[in-house]
Amino acid sequence: MSAPKVQTSASQQGILLVNLGSPKSTSVKDVKTYLDEFLMDERVIDLRWLFRSLLVQGIILQIRPKKSAKAYQSVWTEDGSPLIVFSKQIQKKLQKVVDLPVSLGMRYSEPSIEEGIRQLVNQGINEIILFPLYPQYAMSTTETVTVKAEEVRKKKFPDIKIKYVKPFYHRDIYIEALANSIKKQLPDDFDMLQFSYHGVPERHIYKTDPTHTCNLENCRSDLNFHFNEYCYLNHCYETTRLVRERLNLPENKVIITFQSRLGKDPWLKPYTDITLEHLPKKRVKNLVVVCPAFVSDCLETLEEISEEGQEIFKKAGGETFTYIPCLNDNDEWIQVMKKLCEELY
């Protein structure tokens, strides 16, 4: 590992990587604590506090923790949560190729964003390059990270400055790394490549549209809309288009779906699980799935897609199911992160 850069200027920079987070363990108690913090975030479940509290603490947390704990148990490693393990590996690898100190924080649970900032401040850092590990912008991912970081900064570290790495869903260096990762693991013979993105309620798309002109369909059809800086749906379609073109795949061999919906409100469609059930009926027998909303494998990719999704597909008549892992600590991805951070030096 290279030693952190010794800076002589007034600006002493460091890098803070921020990912979603994970329960401390697979115990029902720890999973419940994690879900409480996660689901009570007003940018995840965007209801008024009273209604959000009644829904989360009165209903969801009475039912979901036991089921989620069992799901976490199926993907938990000897070193802990896959998301935390991969995030630490990313941090370690990035530190080897940059001259700035690199710390790690999670939006929910530990290590917290506050802890990540404090580690850098204790090293004399007064300007932080904060890297939300989400390719596409969404209210429940990028936005909640930046809002939380600013809240912590103002309250605990008012003298530091934070610069943010912007969503990189369309950047050539990221698309190339993602496409190369897919290409290396893409079977020679497959019927369909399914891009499964994390879902969000449809209303989130409207809320993040500063022009108030979005009708969902134009996000899919017109990728040059001037408000696409904040449109998650647009970002998902653009990522898919760019990767498909880089891989030189025909449009009829690629499909976009959205997973992990919660509750009865309309979420982005088509839904991943329903699509997996219907594809074999459309003569899709050999399926490949990739999850580009995540850079690190986690519960939503390893359990929901690779395990549960594969079971749904094969029960419906599918024959082969190939899950392509996230970028994780892929060396090309580490170089992408390095370059994106360097733009803010």
Rank of each mutant, 00 (worst) to 15 (best):
V18A: 10
V18C: 05
N19G: 06
L20T: 06
L20G: 07
G21A: 09
G21N: 10
S22Q: 11
K24V: 10
T26R: 03
S27V: 00
D30M: 13
V31I: 00
Y34P: 01
L35E: 03
D36C: 08
E37F: 08
E37M: 04
E37T: 13
R43F: 12
R43H: 15
D46V: 04
D46F: 01
L47P: 08
R48M: 15
W49E: 12
W49K: 10
W49H: 09
W49C: 10
L50E: 11
F51G: 09
S53C: 14
L55E: 10
Q57F: 08
G58K: 09
I59T: 11
I63C: 08
K66I: 08
K66F: 10
K66D: 05
K66V: 11
K67A: 11
K67Q: 13
A69M: 06
A69Q: 01
K70S: 14
A71G: 15
S74M: 09
V75F: 07
T77D: 08
E78Y: 12
D79G: 07
D79N: 12
D79V: 13
S81T: 05
L83Y: 02
F86C: 05
K88H: 15
I90V: 14
I90R: 01
Q91C: 03
K92A: 14
K93D: 13
K96S: 13
V98F: 00
D99T: 08
P101D: 07
L104H: 05
G105H: 02
M106W: 04
M106I: 05
R107W: 08
R107H: 12
E110C: 09
E115Q: 03
G116T: 08
R118D: 01
L120H: 01
G124L: 06
N126I: 04
F131R: 11
F131M: 13
F131A: 09
P132I: 03
L133M: 14
Y134D: 00
Q136L: 13
M139P: 00
S140K: 02
T141R: 02
V145D: 00
T146N: 10
A149R: 00
E150D: 08
E151W: 03
V152G: 04
R153H: 03
R153K: 15
K155P: 06
